[in-house]
Amino acid sequence: MSDQTPGDPDAPAKAPRARRQRSLRESLGSIVLGFELIVVFLGALVLFGLKSLPAWIALGGGAVVVLLMIAAIGLMRNRVGVVLGWIVQLLVVAAGFLVPAFFIVGAIFTAMWTYCMIAASRIDRNNRTEIR
């Protein structure tokens, strides 16, 4: 019996852990929410800098929406993440009542989110039936 240290080149290699296969809906949803997160964060900073809203509303509201997006990204494998993503889309569009520019931002991201959810779900469903 030989003493093998963890860095020993003669030690048998561990098999790499298999990664979970992500669905297309999960991947595309995470991408859209990730980009939207950056835009909402920067938008909150702009609102604070321009003093369009009180600081606690601009920064606090932006932080809440950003945290909801992070939670939705983490939960995208479940239906809860998708529902949370829809809620985030509604919040960003509703922010347009505070600052009209968010109507445009919300419309763009809601359109991308809607397309990704519909198209990716259809592709995932087709891929599942092909595998069977």
Rank of each mutant, 00 (worst) to 15 (best):
M1Y: 14
S2A: 15
Q4W: 14
T5F: 13
P6I: 02
D8W: 14
D8P: 09
P9I: 09
D10S: 13
A11G: 09
A11F: 15
A11T: 10
P12T: 03
P12N: 04
P12S: 04
A13C: 02
K14L: 14
K14Q: 11
K14Y: 13
A15F: 12
A15R: 08
A15T: 09
R17Y: 15
R17P: 10
A18E: 15
R19N: 08
R19K: 14
R19A: 13
R20N: 11
R20V: 12
Q21A: 12
Q21W: 12
E26D: 14
S27P: 06
I31P: 11
V32S: 04
V32K: 04
L33V: 02
G34T: 04
G34H: 05
L37G: 05
I38M: 05
V39I: 13
V40Q: 00
V40A: 06
F41A: 04
L42I: 03
G43P: 04
G43Q: 00
G43F: 02
A44H: 03
L45E: 01
V46H: 09
L47I: 06
F48H: 09
F48V: 00
G49W: 04
G49N: 07
L50R: 07
K51S: 01
S52R: 05
P54V: 00
P54S: 00
A55N: 00
W56S: 09
W56R: 06
I57C: 08
I57S: 13
A58Q: 03
G60R: 01
G60D: 01
G61L: 07
G62N: 02
G62R: 00
G62I: 02
A63F: 01
V65Y: 01
V65K: 01
L67H: 06
I70H: 05
A71P: 04
A72N: 02
A72H: 02
I73V: 11
G74M: 12
G74D: 03
R77A: 13
N78K: 14
R79Q: 13
R79C: 07
V80E: 06
V80S: 10
G81Q: 03
V83M: 11
V83T: 08
L84N: 02
L84I: 05
G85F: 06
W86H: 13
I87Y: 12
I87S: 07
Q89G: 12
Q89M: 15
L90H: 12
V92P: 06
V93P: 10
A95F: 14
G96P: 10
G96S: 10
F97N: 06
F97W: 13
L98K: 00
L98E: 01
P100L: 03
P100A: 08
P100H: 03
F102Y: 15
F103R: 00
I104G: 08
V105R: 05
V105T: 11
G106C: 08
G106L: 08
A107H: 07
I108L: 15
I108S: 13
F109G: 08
T110L: 09
A111H: 11
M112G: 03
T114I: 14
C116R: 06
C116N: 09
M117N: 10
I118R: 14
I118C: 11
I118A: 12
I118P: 07
A119K: 11
A119R: 13
A120S: 15
S121G: 15
R122L: 07
R122H: 11
R122D: 04
I123L: 07
R125I: 03
N126Y: 14
N126P: 03
N127I: 08
N127G: 07
N127D: 05
T129N: 09
E130L: 10
R132D: 12
R132P: 08
